[in-house]
Amino acid sequence: MTAPRVPGWRRLLLEAGYSLRDFFGTFGAGQLFLLRILASLPYALARPRLVIQQVYVAGVQSLVVIMLAGLFVGMVLALQGHNTLSRFGAEDTIGMVAALGLVRELGPVVTALLFAGRAGTALSSEIGLMKATDQLAGMEMMAVDPIKRVVAPRFLGGVIAVPILTLIFNAMGIFGAWLEAVIVLGVDEGAFWSQMQAQVDLQDDVLSGIVKSVFFGVAASLLAVFEGYNCVPTAEGVGRATTRAVVHTSLTVLVLNFMLTAWLLGGN
């Protein structure tokens, strides 16, 4: 409807142009939205109760999902590691392999993806529904800025919750790896832990993973509240916004992960 009728490859090119324009438009709108949220942070920080509530909603609700996922990811890492490493007689390094995989990559990435699916969708649809039921307009009419009162605390809650969830995911994952490797597959317990401790570095591995998770927390929370706030205020619009939030967050997290990894490794 928007594109004028032109045949063949030229239309394809035109459509690519349109989606590129849409992409940068949305990208820019997201940046501006982030600036508006950041400008509202003093308001949110002056009302810690609102933020605590959102940490609770974002964190506690995702907790069980994150813990289960962490446990099974850790177990499968140990299983795969054992299968491969035992060919070289290096089963002792399973703990190290699992721990490095978890704290550097899988922990932050999988946590962010699960957060997007559990808490992110809840955020988008909650804000979208508030918009659809005039609650946001109602706040505007009561001279209260919804970005300050609704969006900023939810954003902050997500940003705080994601790194904590990542830490819990990592710990559960390593517990799962221990369970599978030591208890099920009979790897020597001492070797498991000592190899892990010798090769996993607090700064380069654990902390760089946390740095990643902070970025992911910002990205996932921002996209969730952005899509909810800018949705078409109908039942269908809210549904679409929720889906879009998950898809965009997943892609953003994966792209961002590559960029952050390159940056963190390049720093050494």
Partner: peptide, 11 residues
């Protein structure tokens, strides 16, 4: 003061 169609109470 404004009264919206469905009240627009904060849920």
């Amino acid at each position: 003061g404004m009264l919206f169609q469905n009240g627009a109470l904060l849920t």
